[in-house]
Amino acid sequence: MEALKQELKEKIIAALNLEHISVEEFDDNETLFGDGIGLDSIDALELIVLLDKDYGIKLTDPKEGKTIFQSVETMANYISANRTK
């Protein structure tokens, strides 16, 4: 799980060009949207593609992302339970 979280942080930073954030200061439980990291709905769409491409998880409704993308912790939990690759 720790490895997955580490990997996710790297992928999120790369996919969303979060050059101002380092993996070290990226907390597992930090809120990704709104006040925390400050992601928005466009980022949510990017993350949906990331789930599909790297873990074989297809979301059809962007609203599903709301609970999954709360934090790196929730994302990692969802991925390990649902990944197909």
């Binding site: 996919a15 466009i42 769409l45 990017e46 593609v49 599909d52 491409k53």
Partner: peptide, 9 residues
Amino acid sequence: QFLTPTSFI
């Protein structure tokens, strides 16, 4: 496949 919206926008 696997396209993301940012560059489209």
